[in-house]
Design a protein around this nucleic acid. Structure first.
Lengths: 119, 119
DNA sequence: ACAAAACATAAATTAAAGTTTATATAATAA
DNA sequence: TTATTATATAAACTTTAATTTATGTTTTGT
């Protein structure tokens, strides 16, 4: 049953955190690992569950995999919106901060490099 | 986090079956046990999870506890509606049939009894 | 061709959730 | 008051899901 898989995917805090992060736009796995401060296989596992449930999409580019929200149908769109609105607490804010720091660090590393020369 | 509890409550097939049954109106625990063809403590456990998540309400009357859907707020109403619409498969139909048979049996047992004399 | 980075997958472990079995409680009927 | 019915709760057990640790794959940089 499709709907059961969707609710199961949404019934885990780590996965709600990932969805909230993706609200800000596409992210690669290492961004998510940095933001959640968790293990890389752990993040991959949860991303897989979310993808199977049709809540996120992936896009491969070189050695990176970028994930973004999949809200092409009404039901999923509503659920994702609900997560954005109703998922609250310090965890999400902290994730957002860690992500910011990490992304900033990435930018710094690229200073002075020409396109396609970065990490 | 409230939303997490709601999704957790919805991430189990037995509980979706209970919600679907309650679509038809209030039921007592023994109705649900009969419809699901499961154990009474099992049904009580799942009813408890659904109640804690605010998806159903209970009403005590004599030795019975009657449960019904709680759709007083928009979000829960939408989720419950989604379950009604999107939960599909033979299980639900079978539950409905078993419930019908059981309720019919109850009625029969009451034939010829004055009010408050039957089960 | 070799090394390193980004991610995925698999096996082993741990933790959480669901089921079963037994017992308790509360209300009604006899 | 004793027995019975409807339900709840608790403890033991089983199943499922999540985490950890180790390794594999692919792509890119040197």
């Amino acid at each position: 049953m499709e709907i059961l898989g969707i609710f199961k995917a949404l019934s885990d805090e780590t996965r709600l955190r990932i969805l909230k992060l993706l609200e800000g736009g596409e992210l690669c796995v290492c961004d998510i690992v940095a933001a959640l401060d968790t293990s890389q296989p752990g993040a991959s596992f949860h991303l897989c569950v979310l993808k199977e449930a049709g809540l996120i999409r992936d896009r491969k580019e070189g050695r990176w995999t970028h994930y973004r929200l999949e809200d092409s149908d009404m039901f999923r769109r509503f659920l994702l919106l609900s997560v954005m609105e109703r998922a609250e607490g310090g965890v999400f804010e902290k994730d957002r901060v860690r992500l910011g720091v990490f992304l900033k660090g990435k930018e710094e590393g690229c200073k002075g490099l020409r396109p396609n020369e970065g990490r």
